[in-house]
């Protein structure tokens, strides 16, 4: 085996490719995360209503997204659901990075199920008396929820929310299966061209580990900052 030589990554158009891969991966992760948090919060709120139909619908959503593999969900969106859309929409999407769009939607919606469960767990752990005290002061249900219940629920759910954020970030690598030019796709591409397997893989490994570590320490930092002062 030839000695490890990282300079190969700086040759030709590899740096550009790697940069593209990095940027795409980060864009995909951020957009999917925003979608997951938005939808997840709405779902958690909907689940708290008294409507049995609403609760069953959210439960079904959560069960589906947690029991079907992420890769299969991406394939279903890109190869399956895409074909159900009206031809005009399909054409438009294909011209505007269709693979990226569907990967974002797939990962975002899948993780929304986990986020909604995390929030639901946090909300359930807040004693009813907190809500009662807020209502007794004259706050509306929504105000009580926003100012008293949710802030406490999020603090409790924070560790699992951070875990699932890391999971979402790792799941972006699956977008390579439908041709999204993110970091893993680029890695495989360069490896097959240059045969410098160790160098490329090590680089990508360090990037993924670095960002995962960053997310986890960021989470711990946030937990400490938000912690309520006590005795």
């Amino acid at each position: 085996m030839s000695p490890v030589d990282f300079s190969v990554l700086a040759k030709g158009d590899y740096p550009q490719l790697i940069a593209q891969g990095l940027v795409t991966m980060l864009e995909l992760a951020l957009l999917a995360w925003l979608l997951a948090v938005l939808v997840g919060t709405v779902l958690a709120l909907v689940r708290m209503t008294t409507s049995r139909l609403a609760q069953s619908a959210v439960a079904a959503w959560v069960e589906y997204h947690q029991n079907v593999p992420m890769l299969v969900q991406i394939l279903l969106w890109y190869f399956g659901i895409a074909t159900l859309l009206p031809p005009g929409v399909q054409l438009w999407i294909n011209r505007h990075a269709g693979e990226f769009v569907f990967a974002t939607i797939a990962v975002g919606l899948a993780m929304s199920a986990y986020i909604s469960e995390d929030l639901r767990g946090g909300i359930r752990s807040i004693p009813k008396s907190q809500l009662e005290a807020a209502r007794a002061l004259g706050l509306t249900y929504l105000q009580s929820f926003r100012k008293v219940v949710l802030p406490q629920a999020v603090r409790i759910a924070l560790p699992t929310l951070v875990n699932h954020t890391v999971l979402l970030f790792k799941n972006t690598s699956l977008a390579m299966a439908i041709g999204v030019v993110e970091l893993t796709y680029v890695t495989r591409d360069i490896e097959s061209q240059s045969f410098k397997t160790v160098e490329v893989y090590l680089f990508t490994t360090v990037v993924y580990l670095g960002i995962s570590l960053l997310l986890m320490t960021g989470g711990s930092f946030l937990e400490r900052r938000l912690a309520v002062p006590g005795r």
Binding site: E132, R135, L137, L139, T140
Partner: peptide
Amino acid sequence: LNKFRSHVGFVFQSFNLFPH
């Protein structure tokens, strides 16, 4: 209802202060 409740002072047995 909410306006009415804001007009009645209520003190609970377990205080129910908002810890955050």
